Computed example of a mutant assay.
Amino acid sequence: MKYQIIDNVSDLEEVCRFAREAEAVMLDTEFVRIRTYYPQLGLIQLFDGERLSLIDPTVIDDMSAFESLLNDGAVLKVLHACGEDLEVFRNAFGCAPFPMVDTQLMAAFLGHGLSTGFAALVQEYLDIELDKSESRADWLARPLSDKQLDYAAADVFYLAPLFELLEQKVSEAGWWDAALQESELLVDKRGVKTDPDNAYLDIKGAWQLQPEQLAILKPLATWRMKEALRRDLALNFVFKEQDLWAVARYGMTSQKQMEKEGFDIRAIRRHGERIIAIVKKAQKQPKDEWPAKIDRLMDYPGYKQQFKALKDQVKKASQASGLATEFLASKKQLNQFLSWVWKKDRDAERLPDVMQGWRKELLGDKLNALMK
């Protein structure tokens, strides 16, 4: 397994020029995300079938050649379990690989579980055992060790033969177009950004709060997200989610009360006054401006029975297709469907996953019929 380190613009332009002549390229990234809101890109692995390149974006000041490769519609980009990689690319380059296929999704169309790892597939299909001991390494530190570089290179070197095998099997099974659709759906989902004004809806336990308390939680959650974005800091490193909920729940307006509840003293010192000001302002908000109570689907009449009926239909589709039930329609996707029916009046502009693409004919239409 030979590879070259790419640490300057001219070499990057050369490897990207060769890569754009290939029908498909293998891609992967190594990044660090511990305290930051955004993933910090440390290394890019690129394999065009002949040249394996480890690109160091920390020292190259012009990555436009790589951005052009990402956007080249004539070259298929192959990745594995690429949800976070998509976020890395969007943050670093403002775009996602196009067109793209995910081998984890391809494997799911062959009956594998949706979370099947790369090493497990390489073991099964190529009979090669990969060393994954460097998966938690610090990819921003320099120099990178030979062990780290070998580990990173292996992720795209073995991706190529794995992709060839999976492509053949998926095509023979008639799922190739569906695999491309599912990969595109993943790109779309990972591209959705949370609106800071709606960040309160993502706070665990928000549904437990009354409108008066939500009127406090909403501006607090908006402030926390904007602060996280501004400082590139993970949300809980700005202010812990459970503490934010408690402030809204009890309408806290003193730092002593926060200390008594066991909040992080550093967070209180840094943000206490700001939080108290937000709470006091929210408490003066007119009642007609309070957010609506959050309705949970599971509290709707007949939810359990309806969900079970949908789940039974998913099992039938699973038995007929050979696809895992969780891949066909996860609990989240079934709830998305129910929300579409009950809360969105089957809005054609906001179709749930099961009413789009390959899922619609296989499963979605049957689920929809059950709800009539």
Rank of each mutant, 00 (worst) to 15 (best):
K316T: 13
R231Y: 00
M1Q: 01
A228G: 12
L201P: 01
K315M: 09
F98C: 10
R33T: 04
L140V: 10
A228H: 04
F66P: 05
A234E: 08
G205R: 05
A141D: 14
I44L: 03
W176P: 04
L41S: 02
L217H: 07
H80Q: 14
A282M: 09
Q285M: 15
D61H: 11
R90D: 11
L362V: 06
Q285C: 13
P39M: 07
L334I: 06
A108S: 15
D138Q: 09
E361N: 13
S183H: 08
D312I: 03
K315N: 09
A96I: 05
V314E: 05
E67F: 02
E124R: 12
Q313S: 07
L214E: 05
D243P: 00
F98K: 12
K132H: 09
K284I: 00
K77G: 06
R249F: 07
F327M: 06
C95W: 03
L323V: 08
Q104S: 12
P143Y: 14
A179N: 10
L338W: 04
L233C: 15
A246W: 07
V354F: 02
E212C: 07
G205L: 08
P352R: 04
L201G: 03
G113K: 11
A206V: 13
L70A: 04
L338I: 13
D150A: 15
V238P: 03
V9Q: 12
W223M: 10
D345C: 00
F157M: 07
N198E: 14
Q40I: 00
D202N: 11
F89I: 04
M1E: 05
D264L: 05
P301Y: 05
L54V: 03
L323A: 07
V170A: 08
K366F: 02
A120R: 13
F98T: 15
E261K: 11
W223P: 10
L217M: 10
D56S: 06
A277T: 14
V341G: 00
L140A: 11
D146V: 11
G262I: 08
G364D: 03
G364M: 04
W207T: 06
I276G: 03
D177H: 10
K147A: 15
L180S: 02
E67Y: 03
I268D: 08
L144G: 10
K2I: 01
M26Q: 12
P211R: 01
L69N: 03
G42H: 04
M1C: 02
V101T: 10
K331W: 03
E87V: 15
F66C: 01
Y300N: 10
A282Q: 07
A248I: 10
A81I: 06
A119C: 09
A141C: 12
L186K: 08
L70T: 02
Q305W: 08
D312Q: 13
G364Q: 01
L149T: 11
E134S: 13
L229G: 11
W358M: 01
V156Y: 04
A22R: 13
D7T: 09
D7V: 00
A199P: 06
L110I: 10
K147D: 14
E349F: 00
S68E: 14
T29E: 02
R359Y: 07
A22L: 01
G322W: 08
Q306C: 12
Q4K: 14
R230M: 09
D28Q: 04
V59C: 14
V75K: 05
I128M: 11
L69P: 03
A206P: 05
A108H: 08
E129H: 14
P143C: 13
L126Q: 15
E259W: 05
D85P: 09
D138Y: 09
I60Q: 07
L130K: 08
A74W: 02
S330G: 08
L41P: 02
